[in-house]
């Protein structure tokens, strides 16, 4: 359980430059509430970078480094190693990257850092496209979804990143979303107390890119979980799966019908997606069953 103090404290000031209803801002705010003031944040190009600071201002109350696109992980590793050399202990290093910076351009350097089990938390703020440059498809964009570079819908399914993460045997990985804030904060609390590379995959609603009303961010995040489309679970040492929230099994249609990026979906598209979601869920349940 979260302490009242953790829920109330803030390490993001007001005045961020995100769009109304931005899931990135809310998610980062929740994460920092848990990590607290003994935290150094590494960000890379993406919405989270642009909304966090314009010289000489910063919305973050903790030290932050705006690094380059493909190097969130090695940048964080450089800092955490340097802290070790300097004998400064008990400082969290948080690497924040979007889906572009994680699924695509930063995957190699994340793999390298995870392989060495460098000590930091990697937070992937996944809004399923390059939103900062204006809604272009990434390998996290779901199949057939509209973006500016896939006007006829993206070909190929969203990359299964957690499978790749599992191959690295990280001590801790988890999926989270702002739709389930307490679950999110408890997982960050766990990650905070584990040494090594911790990976947090956050599904982050983006009203602008998802073509959705700005008051629907929390709802869409919640529907993603409850429809089993984005299950919440933990993955320990790349082997042990633990589902942290039993979804209600709301039809996936309820999730996609509030988003314009799915507007062109036919009934058979919806049906196919529902089938995929159900199959993926069953696979996850099987994996979780066989775990200790």
């Amino acid at each position: 359980m979260m302490l009242k103090e953790e829920l109330e404290r803030e390490y993001m000031r007001s005045g961020h430059m995100g769009c109304p209803g931005c899931g990135v801002a809310t998610t980062l705010r929740l994460v920092l509430k848990v990590l607290g003031e003994r935290t150094i944040v590494v960000i890379i190009p993406g919405c989270h970078a642009v909304i966090s600071a314009n010289y000489p201002n910063s919305v973050l109350k903790v030290p932050c480094f705006h690094s380059a696109f493909e190097i969130a992980a090695p940048t964080a590793a450089g800092i955490s190693n340097a802290l070790k050399i300097r004998g400064e202990e008990g400082i969290n290093v948080l690497a924040v990257a979007g889906d572009g910076g994680t699924f695509d351009i930063g995957l190699q350097s994340l793999s390298g850092a995870a392989d060495r089990n460098e000590d930091f938390i990697y937070l992937c703020l996944d809004n399923e496209a390059y939103m900062n440059t204006g809604i272009q498809s990434s390998s996290s964009t779901p199949e057939k979804v509209w973006t500016m570079t896939t006007p006829g819908g993206r070909k190929g399914r969203k990359k299964n990143l957690m499978q790749i993460i599992a191959g690295h045997r990280m001590p801790y990985a988890a999926t989270v979303t702002m739709g389930k804030p307490l679950d999110l904060m408890e997982k960050i609390e766990k990650a905070k107390n584990i040494r090594g590379t911790k990976f947090i995959h956050a599904l982050v609603p983006c009203p602008t890119g998802w073509r959705m009303a700005e008051n629907l961010s929390a709802k869409s995040a919640m529907l993603a979980v409850e429809s089993k489309l984005f299950p919440l679970y933990e993955l320990i040492d790349g082997i042990n799966f633990r589902i942290t929230h039993e979804p209600q099994g709301i039809p996936v249609k309820e999730y996609i019908k509030i988003q314009g990026r799915y507007r062109h979906f036919t009934d058979s598209d919806v049906e196919a997606l529902q089938k995929q979601v159900d199959e993926e869920w069953e696979r996850l349940v099987e994996k979780a069953k066989s775990c200790i």
Binding site: F65, E70, A76, A82, L83, K84, R86, Q108, S109
Partner: peptide, 23 residues
Amino acid sequence: VMMRTESEHSAMAACISAALTGV
């Protein structure tokens, strides 16, 4: 610390952030 990185790009990235942290 000796970091055996997966590319020169990451090696320089880590040197930069470590140097910014004061080593």
